[in-house]
Write a protein that binds this DNA or RNA. Sequence first.
DNA 1: TCAATAGTGTCTGTTAGACATTATGGA
DNA 2: TCCATAATGTCTAACAGACACTATTGA
Lengths: 224, 224
Amino acid sequence: MPERRGRKSSYTIDLALFTAVKDQLAVLLWRTPEEKEKWSLPWEIPTSDGTLADSAGRIAAAALGVPPSWLEQVCAFGDEKRHPSETEISVAFVGLVPAGTPPPVGGAYAWFPVGELPTLAPRHREMLDSAAATVRLRMDNSPVAFKLLPATFTLGELQHMYELLLGKRLHKASFRRALQAAWLVEPTDEWRTEGRGRPAQLFRYAPRKRRPAQRGIRLDLLTS
Amino acid sequence: MPERRGRKSSYTIDLALFTAVKDQLAVLLWRTPEEKEKWSLPWEIPTSDGTLADSAGRIAAAALGVPPSWLEQVCAFGDEKRHPSETEISVAFVGLVPAGTPPPVGGAYAWFPVGELPTLAPRHREMLDSAAATVRLRMDNSPVAFKLLPATFTLGELQHMYELLLGKRLHKASFRRALQAAWLVEPTDEWRTEGRGRPAQLFRYAPRKRRPAQRGIRLDLLTS
DNA sequence: TCAATAGTGTCTGTTAGACATTATGGA
DNA sequence: TCCATAATGTCTAACAGACACTATTGA
């Protein structure tokens, strides 16, 4: 991860790459060949070519071979909290890859459920929490849930993903009604049979233009 | 704005400080005594003491004499877009001050309605757009509208602020009902008479703990 | 056949938006 | 008095949540 090519900068790009594993978010961590027990978020000291996001994309590609399906900057971290590098500040990015993406081989990278994380550098720990919060915050602005799913999926899988991200159970009929009203998915002609029970139809993400008017103002500040 | 004290860093902290002027957001810009026509967002090359947010707070205090009522990081900007400094990256912050805050005197600082901005450095222009978007995005997580109002305000003023931030008209009765349900304000025993019409009661921001359960899932992705 | 899961129709309590009405000041 | 604005009550269409029901597979 240390300086790779070109001239050195005085800041790092760090990436929190998430996927869904069963009923939890999982984050991709990296360890050096030397210190097999010290895990960290993958990071690099960027070269001068390209944008910050380009740099984050390179980190993801180096780890998984494929670009993330969604990538966004979280923010910069510069408190005195420690970082593997000795740079003053670090710019954190958050990325998503679909569930079922082949895991990286070799042992340098591994997925960790966010509930079972190893010890991380303080600044990385802080980044990770912010990154997860960013994903949840972006849910109703970006099709985040879809970016964590493969190209086709059942409505049950989609609902499970929403429940995972929202951290609460949803009502099946209401969820599907809302989904129809939002014109976010379209059915394919494939069905998937899984164990017992009626097969489920597969859908794909296909947003359509919609009535911009939606009902209701919510003044739902959580009183923090 | 250039290097102020302590050791120099290789990045800048830039601040987009907003207030409400009539029916528009306004942003605080700064110009050097030498170049009276080149306006920019106030910025500094931070010293090593304190957090990034501390640095942003210092910028605001230097400009207005008072700390902002709300301050949050937007993100880091590092594209090749130009910046008054020659640093590789800049960390943008967004701050709010109540409408009616005494404007800075002397001519180095001035409020500009976001609809009538002078030419800015490309990176500053980008920061400003992101900062305004951040304010609107945080609306339903933080009491942003209240931070743009003085300590006491009429419900009409509050509704106007929401309309300004949301960019659309709201229904008066519905707005007040939602406000009551959210337990965000409490009445004072003062009334303000303004021109003609019945005087309006003054309220203050006083959030109470609330039922965390709220009705409804919205799958309201705007199909971008 | 039963069990399990997918998908759908109907009912009901809640509520956003519309409208009307009252209240209270200035001109 | 008339007008303008604040504040509030009532009605209605829309909708979230609940429940029940049908559909379709494997065991």
